[in-house]
Design a protein around this nucleic acid. Structure first.
Lengths: 107, 107
DNA sequence: TCTTCATATGAACCACAATTCATACGTATT
DNA sequence: AATACGTATGAATTGTGGTTCATATGAAGA
């Protein structure tokens, strides 16, 4: 492990409900900002801000296309992580706190 | 995946420098609170607060021993995650932001 | 070049998580 | 039972990241 802090920023993304939703949405297929705002029903600037920090951490990448900007997931990076999250965290995350949170309702 | 929000709390621990340090320290061997405060050079109440939330999320567990409380890492849960972090995030986390953070210096 | 559409950006604001500090609790020792 | 030690806890404060809103940018079309 490079140094203890290398992953701090990385995990802060996964601990953000909106960013996590973006990741999962982009996992299905690349999308532009408008598509994301409407499918997640979240305000445009929120989406843009979130995408910008995801991009900075190499989790997503952009491709301009006309006036649109197509965002896509850097699958090679994040997919193994998502898979592990699915098997492991899913198995062990049984604390009450986790259950209470309803991120989809908020963001 | 159970629901999008199940992992929110879980990852919020990994995105916290102090908690991450605790995890890494406990990975070496189980320790009591005093040992943790002195090896990480962090105030006792900070450690206690952090440990308490890690415990709530099943990341660590406690065993009372006299007046001490021995904390240990729930390796089966967290180790595969740490391993994946090591191989993957290490490879892709090259953004400037990540490099700037010096968690060991702060917490 | 003017307008429109798609997106980004900055700054003020707000919410929540972390820190701090004082104190309480529990266990052992005398 | 009184004290000391190890740890936990609560409440007030601080700090940080997320939200909001207004506005800027940039590309395309008229």
């Amino acid at each position: 492990m490079k140094n203890n802090s290398s992953y701090y920023v990385f995990f802060s993304h996964l601990s953000n409900p909106l960013k996590m939703r973006l990741i999962l949405e982009l996992q299905k297929s690349p999308k532009n900002v408008n598509q994301l705002t409407s499918s997640l029903r979240v305000e445009q600037s929120k989406i843009s801000h979130a995408l910008s920090s995801l991009k900075q951490c190499n989790i997503v990448s952009v491709k301009p296309e006309g006036k649109q900007r197509i965002y896509s997931l850097n699958s090679r990076m994040i997919l193994p992580m998502l898979k592990l999250i699915d098997t492991h965290a899913n198995k062990y995350c049984n604390c009450e706190t986790c259950g209470e949170i309803q991120c989809s309702a908020k963001n």
